[in-house]
Design a binder for these strands. Structure first.
Lengths: 253, 253
DNA sequence: CAGTGGTCTAGACCACCAC
DNA sequence: TGGTGGTCTAGACCACTGC
């Protein structure tokens, strides 16, 4: 028994445009014909073309820009390897694991520290750190770019009693980064747990990541534990799902 | 600088319906008012209501059924803990890790073996196993349900020289399952790598998983390695992204 | 100012379900 | 047979871009 019903027209058109992009008819970075033009070409209404492009947009294949046109996305998928990114060798390649991941793809990484200091722990971070909501914690909030395109938001939270008076609160955490400073403070992270969710972006996230409201983000919540099994850092990563592939490697216990 | 522009009407309506569901106005499993009724209630066109419900549907919050109405989803998110599911204790709780995961949520698991035997290795499996495309491999294809709702497709591929003549090709792989039989054959899996992608379902996947075409699936490709670092099993899992939360835990190397 | 994509409506037709 | 959701069109107005 095969599938005999034909897909709706907007999906057929989406697939045909998709195929045209894959065939090189519209190379990465190039502009697609305007919607009225595509409507005529495929013999459908402009509304249907708009919907078909919405499908491709939600997959990150195409980027519409009001007043300018619709462009083929030029940023390839980035691989995030969770198991290796805490390793000293990877972190010291550049300024961090993120830098290494992007350079491997020939992309230019840029990372900006948008906030550093003391805040009251938000609910999720407090729970993962085993603290009361509102406890003082150190925050390090970063915004990351690939070829100046925003690709990730990351907020690290560290219990205040660990971070206080250390370079963790400096603009530059120095050689080896945050994890090396946690080690200096006697709380070297030795175990990690990450939880992955996929959801629609908030307004704020959509704005910074230049995302459509119907695309998806990965939310990765990482907890780093020291040798005493104490949670010493929580980091919440938010990134467009279509831009990333996630990889994990571990040994049987 | 805050966000001053108001979101489009279809998103505002989606949020209001979302809030009504969260507030218990429409409990899990209940039927929403018909689209024309909602259109009148919110003072918008039926097309806009249809789009707003499409947003909620793509998040898995709501399940429209043609000819019957639109219902609030009653299946909660399932947590898949990759680090513990290979452990013998977890596997022996029920018939496998999947069973344990669901029972923990009070759901009734069901698993069906839909295919077992020899096939030519498809491209992705062959690459991950380090074999030529088309090499003979054993396949075990399973379909999994929660309360009789389909929630996952999984296909395991094992190199033929390992599987041949073992209970791996039986309907029932016996106590401890596939991994115990690999151990019996001298290829106990000791290391694992999983790669996660998020994409739109194929027609076939959408059909079996009863998904909308604009929802997303997680595709998890797992490779199990034995002590000689030989890949002894590849398993491709496909599951609706909104139904699952993924969890990984590992130690610093 | 002309052209772009974003949104919304009114109206239509269809496939499907329950009665 | 009437009500449901799924799709599609024609037409409109808007915000934004680049000339």
């Amino acid at each position: 028994m095969s599938i005999q019903s034909t897909p709706p027209a907007y999906l057929q058109v989406a697939n045909r445009i998709n195929a045209a992009i894959a065939a090189g008819e519209y190379p990465p970075g190039s502009k697609l014909p305007a919607e009225p033009e595509l409507a005529e070409k495929y013999g459908v209404s402009r509304a249907l073309i708009n919907r078909a492009l919405g499908v491709l947009q939600s997959q990150g294949l195409v980027i519409p820009q009001r007043g300018r046109g619709t462009f083929v996305n030029a940023i390839p998928q980035i691989i995030r390897n969770a198991a290796t990114r805490q390793q000293r060798s990877v972190r010291e390649e550049g300024r961090g694991a993120f830098d290494a991941e992007l350079r491997r793809l020939g992309l230019t990484p840029r990372s900006e520290l948008s906030q550093v200091g003391q805040v009251e722990a938000p609910a999720q971070a407090a729970e993962l750190l085993g603290l009361e909501v509102g406890s003082p914690v150190a925050i390090r909030r970063r915004e990351m770019f690939a070829n100046d395109v925003p690709v990730q938001l990351a907020s690290s939270y560290i219990p205040w009693d660990i971070a206080e008076g250390t370079p963790i609160l400096d603009q530059d955490t120095g050689q080896g980064g945050l994890y090396s400073r946690l080690s200096d403070a006697g709380h070297a992270p030795v175990e990690f747990e990450e939880t992955i969710d996929s959801r629609m972006p908030t307004e704020e996230e959509a704005q910074f990541l230049a995302m459509d409201r119907e695309q998806r983000v990965y939310v990765i919540s990482r907890v780093a534990y020291d040798a005493e099994q104490r949670p010493v850092e929580v980091c919440i990563h938010v990134m467009p799902a279509h831009q990333w592939q996630l990889k994990y490697r571990w040994s049987a216990s």
